[in-house]
Design a binder for these strands. Structure first.
Lengths: 241, 241
DNA sequence: GCGCATTTGCGTACGATGTGCGCTATGGTA
DNA sequence: TACCATAGCGCACATCGTACGCAAATGCGC
């Protein structure tokens, strides 16, 4: 009985896991994290779950990412990378350019609702390259539109704050619905009675809820967004006249 | 050796914890939660820690609060309760009234920075009484200012989105500084070199950072907030003809 | 081709977390 | 006095982030 013939604790029985996958890379980890977050929400992202989606152990990820917070920073910037950089419009077109950026920023947040919560935790302290690129570009649009560098900065902050504020509210709603596992219709219908009861003592809120009953929520969100965006841009435009 | 003289496992050694404190109440729990959150940030709130601050076990809290999320809902509404309800201004004064609400909303968020993260998670789905009261009041200001009920709703959403957007960014920064255990000065000085390196390839961002160097951050945050607020209100005012 | 140094993956383990369950004591009511 | 609803709590469980150290794999200088 040489050790070669021992079937159990032998070289041949040893795991022999060669690296089939071309290993693990930071980009791959971040991309999979974004996918997981989109599919299952922010609470579903644990290092173990992410690891097993990549056929890897949980702690393997730490070779490429310092910790979970850093992973989120990277994921946020990855999403920022989806934003198109609209071509620099001429002086007449600053407003159209900003509108376009505002709309695609909102759309991106709604496509990845978890990002709202993360931006709420970290704000603008992220220094990710995609975010910086986008910021630089926005400043450029305002400056070529006629704003001084200082005011371009303030104008940009105003628009971005507005868009993030609106989109955060919408995204939070989407996240809650997704977490509930129901359709948007079901969820709204389950919440509605409680909401109506809660606003009973407030005439204006009652009227508001009554008016919204049966309306398509997504459509009126969109309308509200556009209304506010136009007001913000009106206010900025009047500074140029 | 009668069992009376046994000092260890006897009736007298038994804990004998009478209820000195008038027990535990939901209000008390929420108030202490807000205090803990203010002092130590959102990560420091665990049911065990909150319990021990109230001389109670962790699971005792569950008699008064369904779960941790509900506790946060209550805490958020508790903070909303701090907002003053400004007296309803006349038709000429809608703008001043909104300004006042906007400023106190921002101030409240900065006093309780953790609330920004929570609002980012839940948005406007909170139906807390204080939040409802405040919303009703805001709608009233816009309506008496001359906005139709529908447009008052949109106008309010716009202002609130802007204020939340700005304040969320500021609050996130404050939370990060607090978590780092450093003073704001120290923290900024530690971050600055990395930031300057990151923006090197972007001329406008580089100029912006250069201009901000040495400025008082809180003061320029305040200026930015006021700038944007005035633009938003300008845009709304122009709708009144 | 070979030997060594560095990098990568992972098994194990630790402390902390949210919370379900069932026991016990308390205080009010009949 | 007997009873019962309720508040508080100890215990337990599953899950989490992540520190540590070993083993395989890879890259590098010869």
């Amino acid at each position: 009985m040489s050790s070669n013939e021992q079937p159990i604790p032998s070289v041949w029985a040893r795991p022999r896991r060669e690296r089939e996958q071309p290993a693990l890379s930071r980009d791959q980890i971040v991309a999979e994290a974004v996918r997981l977050l989109d599919e299952e929400g922010v609470d579903a992202l644990s290092m173990r779950r992410l690891g097993s989606r990549l056929n890897a152990g949980a702690t393997s990820l730490y070779r490429h990412v310092a910790n979970k917070d850093e992973l989120f920073e990277l994921a946020v910037d990855e999403v920022y990378g989806e934003l198109p950089l609209p071509e620099q419009a001429g002086a007449a077109g600053w407003r159209a350019g900003i509108e376009q950026v505002a709309r695609s920023l909102r759309a991106t947040i709604l496509r990845h609702p978890w990002i709202a919560a993360k931006l709420g935790e970290v704000g603008l302290a992220y220094l990710g390259p995609n975010m910086l690129r986008q910021t630089e570009h926005l400043l450029g649009i305002f400056e070529t539109g006629g704003f001084s560098p200082e005011e371009a900065d303030q104008a940009m902050n105003t628009v971005v704050a507005y868009v993030l504020g609106v989109s955060t509210g919408e995204a939070a709603m989407l996240s809650m619905i997704a977490r509930s596992g129901q359709t948007e219709q079901e969820w709204l219908e389950r919440l509605w009675p409680a909401a109506e009861r809660a606003v009973q003592d407030y005439p204006r809120l009652r009227a508001r809820y009554a008016a919204q009953r049966g309306q398509d929520a997504r459509e009126s969100d969109q309308d509200n967004f556009e209304y506010g965006l136009q007001r913000v841009l009106d206010g900025l435009q009047s500074r140029l006249g």
